[in-house]
Design a protein around this nucleic acid. Structure first.
Lengths: 109, 109
DNA sequence: TAATAGTACCTTGTGTTGCAAGGTAATTGA
DNA sequence: TCAATTACCTTGCAACACAAGGTACTATTA
């Protein structure tokens, strides 16, 4: 039972996810499950199988770092935070995003 | 010689391209080379190897149709135009795009 | 104390997509 | 007739999102 709208949304947000993650972590550090919640609250549903590899990729690129922290309720959490390099990347993505928004506006005019 | 900014842009516009193509063809029919020019004018550089498979995919999905037309200067051109189904998809993409823009705004606030 | 539920982590395999780097065919002009 | 131009298209690769699994730790409860 495949919903076309889901497919459209899924395709369209490809590549924007990394931007979302960096934007979230630019404000405060967070662990995967809390990032999922924040994305969900912002109306962008993402599943674990998408998020974890993405976080690992960004960490390997030096855009993120992490530390372990014990939790009072459950297993330890891996808190990610953005690096200086990550902030640089984020600034580039801000520019790229603006450009895309303007491109769409141009084409829709 | 790989430019990081190019990579960022390339990743970010994944999935948005189909939206751009449908938006362009919603206004008037066009052939591949003219679509490439229009995208370039709107600041979204795309290459042939990306565009042709995309047009074929959309045609196979019934979103587009085409007709051949002789050209006064060069080989015949394949003019694509959007179908009723394509317009339906475009309306869904309009909604999806608005949603993504709002998501980014929420996360950047 | 054994079993269950909840939380948090991660991996594998698949399909889609964008791109680089090729190629074919028709027309025009030198 | 042969190079340039315009227009079409294909193949192989890498990156990405997702479905569908899995492991490990903690708290609850029977």
């Amino acid at each position: 039972m495949e919903n076309i709208s889901d497919n459209v949304r899924s395709q369209m947000r490809k590549g924007v996810l990394e931007y979302c993650i960096l934007s979230i972590l630019d404000r405060k550090e967070a662990y995967a499950s809390s990032i999922l919640e924040e994305l969900k609250a912002a109306n962008m549903i993402v599943v674990e199988g998408t998020l974890y590899p993405l976080l690992i990729r960004e960490k390997n690129q030096g855009l993120l770092s992490y530390r372990w922290e014990e939790s009072t309720q459950g297993p330890p959490r891996k808190y990610y935070c953005i690096t200086e390099k990550g902030r640089g990347q984020l600034r580039e993505m801000d520019a790229a995003w603006q450009e895309i928004v303007e491109t769409i506006n141009t084409l829709k005019k």
